[in-house]
Nucleic acid binder design. Structure first.
Length: 642
RNA sequence: GCCGCCAUAGCUCAGCUGGUAGAGCACCUGAUUUGUAAUCAGGGGGUCACAGGUUCGAGUCCUGUUGGCGGCACCA
């Protein structure tokens, strides 16, 4: 009996019934068979060794493809689990999936693992690879599988099978030789030897069983795995590069900001960091002014009663900074600006003619974030949002959202951040409002995004409890993604706080509130910019734009004069008259990522010129002071003023 | 908040099995007046995070606290 095997290029060849993917691959070429990790049979991923019984569409998955790498990583997770269970008897396996760059496995064991164990575990993993154990797929029924895992003390596995698998449904178990087995959907490699050794254990972490804080905490071992050693080395290199960009390191080295233990999650902005901040804020203000926003400022601290009315006290009390006065009042620092903005909206009467009303605030908020979540500038307890609320009629929502997307796109691009995608966060499990409401609200955002020419990626359950949201996911210079910017269409808060306007019909109507931010928190945004540029900011953002450096002390007077002239042109300039050689100064200011070094020696002083040197190049450009003023001021112009 | 790891000079780090702290850079002083990625010499600087304990003796071992880091959970 023969069957037809159809290849991706359309060719059809005949094979004996029961042929394996591996045999087909070997028939094509030795090299292909070696690179193969699994096959696709009628679109489904199969083991290389699984017999194909019927005619089918066929495709070979190689280790250097994305799908192949995932299979490889899954095998690495299994090999890790086997190694751990052999070395640490009594350890239970739970769950070990693939990640973006590798895999992890969660173990249940009373004794903690230590990163010191990694070398030992990696050694055992290598031994398992060397042993080249055949990986065997077995099909069991649910009951025998549960009984088996219970009998060997694998309570978590038994529980998983019990809850995930429907009664009567067969399940697949993959075993490494006769030594070790795990429940798995597969496919897997034909033998452990094929995994190769381009893997490395990376870190150790706690993780809750099923991601739920109420459950037991397991020990997670993270690893990375690649098709070959070269890819692994490249990956480790990328990690090193990313570490060099760490905004916490650069923030200290560049004297931008610091934090200290008396104010966890609070930032001390140094002069240079605040210069960045002011530059960004001024830019944002110009953008908002042009986009028809008005700016307001609301109180930092408000009475508990106010937060009860807004509903925040009930929902987020434990995350609020609460204080009590000597007179016994209970107050809270504002955790967000929206309820304050509603108060301004409600002051006096609003007509449909006032809408859409775009109310912006660089609002400083405080939230008591869990200590374990704090992370440099990325997650802080005191932050300033580039916040705004657009009060509008329902029929204005789509246009407003679309216009916002366009505005945000411009702004993100001006900061050198590329858009990866926009995500639509839909109804979460814990939510207010009916299904009809969510259908409508999600539909509005989807339509608005399309109006702006964007097809959002749906992220199920990621919406706020009162509204769905669109999030901007940006890509930085080394391809990492960051979420900056969001918009939500909120019907709940205007209702709750009684905001209303008079419509054309003379009746009172409820406005909708669009919560929106483009940077998010300025703190975090600055953190993202630092990492994106690795500290080498474009001229308009750079805290110091030009350093005038002297070669000899004879040029000191002229250096100060030149700096003063450049400052008159609006540039941020420092003078370096230190008793050092010009080599030293060039090196120092290059490492400090100053965009322009203006060197002045005796010659420049006599001719009233500057020898300019740009960051990243070693070319010298000698121009007159007057020319430099015009040229550099032009270069330092923010993108919206060019 | 939870799990694990870590904490030595302003920064980066060394300090072996317990015997009262060291380097490089930075800083200060002096010499040098220099032409595009580190001039030379000298000097100051540390309750070894904090609090207990073990010991004749603790940076080193133990306990606790605080903070940092990596994850998990959380993120209106």
């Amino acid at each position: 009996m023969s069957i037809d095997i159809r290849f991706p290029d359309g060719a059809v060849r005949q094979f004996d019934k029961g042929v394996t993917g591996l045999a087909i691959a070997e028939g094509i070429s030795k090299g292909l068979a070696k690179k193969a990790v699994a096959v696709k049979v009628n679109g489904a991923e199969w083991d290389l060794t699984r017999p194909i019984e019927e005619s089918a569409a066929f495709e070979i998955i190689t280790r250097d493809s994305a799908a192949g790498l995932d299979i490889l990583r899954h095998d690495a997770a299994h090999v890790l689990a086997q190694a751990v269970q052999e070395l640490f008897p009594g350890t239970q396996v739970t769950f070990g999936p693939v990640t973006d760059d590798g895999f992890y496995y969660d173990f249940a064991r009373d004794e903690p693992f230590s990163t010191d164990d990694f070398a030992k575990i990696e050694k055992r993993m290598a031994e398992i690879v060397d042993a080249d154990l055949p990986i065997i797929r077995k099909v069991w029924n649910k009951e025998e599988a549960i009984a088996h895992f219970r009998s060997i003390g694998e309570i978590y596995k038994a529980e998983t099978i019990d809850e995930v698998i429907k009664p009567g449904e067969p399940i697949t178990i993959y075993s490494h030789g006769d030594k070790w087995g795990d429940l798995c959907r597969g496919p897997h490699l034909p033998s452990t030897g094929r995994l190769g050794k381009a893997f490395k254990l990376m870190k150790l972490a706690g993780a809750y069983w099923r991601g739920d804080q109420a459950n037991a905490q397991l020990q997670r071992i993270y690893g990375t795995a690649w098709a070959d050693e070269k890819q692994l080395a490249e990956h480790l290199q990328r990690i090193e590069e990313a570490e060099k960009r760490d905004h916490r390191k650069l923030g200290r080295a560049m004297d931008l900001f610091h934090m200290q233990e008396e104010g966890r999650g609070m930032v001390f902005w140094h002069e240079k960091g605040l210069t960045l901040w002011r530059t960004i804020e001024a830019y944002m203000r110009r953008r908002l002014d042009k986009a028809g926003y008005v700016e307001v400022r609301t109180p930092q601290v408000l009475d508990r009663v106010f937060w009860e009315k807004s509903g925040h006290w009930q929902n987020y009390h434990e995350h609020m900074f609460v204080c009590e006065t000597v007179e016994g009042e209970e107050l809270s620092l504002k955790p967000m600006n929206c309820p304050g903005h509603v108060q301004i909206f409600k002051f006096g009467q609003k007509s449909y003619r006032d809408l859409p009303l775009r109310m912006a605030e660089f609002g400083a908020c405080h939230r008591y974030e869990p200590s374990g979540s704090l992370h440099g500038l990325m997650r802080v307890r005191a932050f300033t949002q580039d916040d705004a609320h657009i009060f509008c009629r329902e029929d204005q929502i789509e246009d407003e959202v679309a216009a916002f997307i366009t505005l945000a796109n411009h702004i993100h691009a001006d900061f050198g951040l590329e858009r990866d995608h926009i995500s639509l966060g839909t109804r979460p499990e814990k939510r207010a409002g009916t299904e009809e409401f969510w259908d409508m609200a999600e539909g509005q955002l989807l339509n608005a995004a399309r109006k702006a020419g964007v097809e959002p990626v749906i992220t199920p359950g990621d919406g706020a409890f009162y509204a769905p949201k669109l999030d901007f996911v940006l890509k930085d210079a080394i391809g990492r993604t960051w979420t900056c910017g969001t918009i939500q269409n909120d019907y709940v808060l205007p209702e709750r706080l009684g905001a209303e306007f008079t419509g054309e019909d003379g009746q009172k109507h409820r406005p909708v509130m669009l919560h929106r931010a483009i940077c998010g928190s300025l703190e975090r945004f600055i953190g993202v910019l630092i990492e994106n540029y690795a500290g080498a900011f474009p001229m308009w953002l750079s805290p110091v734009q030009v350093v005038v450096a002297t070669i000899t002390s004879d040029a000191e007077g002229y250096a100060h004069e030149a700096a003063a002239e450049l400052r008159k042109a609006g540039l941020r300039v420092q003078v370096d008259v230190a008793n050092e050689k010009i080599n030293y100064k060039v090196r120092e200011h290059s490492l400090a990522k100053i965009p322009v070094i203006a060197v002045v020696g005796r010659k420049e002083a006599e001719e009233r010129k500057l020898a300019l040197r740009r960051l990243g190049g070693d070319a010298q450009q000698v121009v007159t002071l007057e020319e430099a003023k015009v040229m550099l001021a032009e270069e330092a112009l923010p993108p919206d003023m060019r």
